[in-house]
């Protein structure tokens, strides 16, 4: 907790697929909307979520429990769960791109915000977005690859904030 009693939320975003991008941005932006002080540390595969050009996709092959449904057509068609064998999702070129566009359409149909919108809300609500300096060096990212309004830092930077936080999650 801060000295003035404000609740603090410390999150680590370690995954960069579209589905994994939602939890940190939803929680961070909403915590800030609830007058909490929030920091998100973007490390390893979570780091590209700070890139100006967001390319996050879903990966059905790596997530066999992902419901495979179509976001258009009659209700019976939309409710049908497509049994896509791993042998198909793993080898068909562009399968992730196709599944990603279906997922994005479904989100839009259901009134779910895009990652870009949630990230913008985080910046507006003054969420501290910290890019992991070590991950930048390892994967060759530069400061100018990222959106404005972020900080660079390392484990100690995050832990100093997290040490007196009320909520701390590794995502």
């Amino acid at each position: 907790m801060s000295d003035d009693g404000t609740k603090k939320v410390a999150l680590i975003a370690s995954q960069g697929t579209l589905d994994w991008a939602y939890p940190p941005f939803i929680l961070a932006s909403t915590a800030a909307a609830l007058d909490m002080e929030v920091a998100v540390f973007f490390t390893f595969y979570g780091l590209p979520l700070l890139c100006k050009d967001l390319k996050a996709k879903v990966s059905p092959h790596a997530n066999p429990a992902m419901p495979m449904k179509m976001p258009f057509g009659p209700k019976g068609f939309q409710d049908f769960q497509w049994p896509i064998p791993n042998a198909v999702s793993g080898v068909v070129p562009g399968f992730d791109t196709f599944a990603t566009s279906m997922m994005k359409k479904q989100f839009k149909n259901k009134g779910v915000a895009t990652i870009e919108e949630l990230r913008e809300a985080c910046v507006e609500l003054e969420v501290k977005l910290i890019a992991c300096q070590m991950t930048m060096d390892v994967f060759g990212f530069k400061r100018e690859d990222f959106i404005d309004g972020i900080d660079l830092g390392g484990a100690a930077t995050f832990l100093e904030f997290a040490a007196d936080s009320d909520v701390s999650l590794f995502i």
Binding site: I26, T30, A33, G111, V112, A113, A121, L125
Partner: peptide, 14 residues
Amino acid sequence: RGLNCPLPVHRTKQ
């Protein structure tokens, strides 16, 4: 209306 979690809360805050 038509917005899903967490947008109603965000818009209210705004």
